[in-house]
């Protein structure tokens, strides 16, 4: 829901793409994160295993979205569109779990 004024800028920035080097660096980072998450899965950290695994996955996803999918170089509108799905997913997760996690409080 950006204003009209943001549109011309977005047009200009839409074609700013990252340099090739960025792609390789991001790819490298993704591979390292993959190795890390696999490694962590062999260590028993209790509840932290899940937290770390999902956090690493989130970081990887953000890297892909920002760089491979060019959101970093895109208009604010694109940011909003890219975020919307995940925000609504969080609503679904949060509100659904609010039931399941509090069910045992009173029976």
């Amino acid at each position: 829901m950006t204003q009209q004024t943001s549109q011309p800028t977005s047009e200009r920035t839409a074609h700013q793409a990252p340099a090739l080097r960025t792609y390789y660096l991001i790819f490298l980072a993704l591979m390292l994160l993959l190795a890390l998450t696999v490694a962590v899965s062999f260590v028993d950290l209790g509840a932290f295993n899940e937290l770390i695994a999902l956090a690493i996955a989130a970081v990887k996803a953000v890297l892909v979205i920002l760089f491979f999918m060019h959101v970093r170089y895109s208009s604010r509108l694109t940011w909003v569109f890219a975020a919307a799905g995940f925000v609504w997913l969080l609503i679904m997760v949060g509100w659904t779990f609010s039931d399941y996690l509090s069910r045992g409080w009173m029976r």
């Binding site: 998450t37 696999v38 899965s41 062999f42 295993n49 695994a53 999902l54 690493i56 996955a57 996803a61």
Partner: peptide
């Protein structure tokens, strides 16, 4: 990206 989440969700959460 879907796979990035599927992989830990299904394969890694084994501890």
């Amino acid at each position: 990206i879907v796979w990035i989440f599927l992989f830990p969700t299904l394969y890694l959460l084994r501890q």
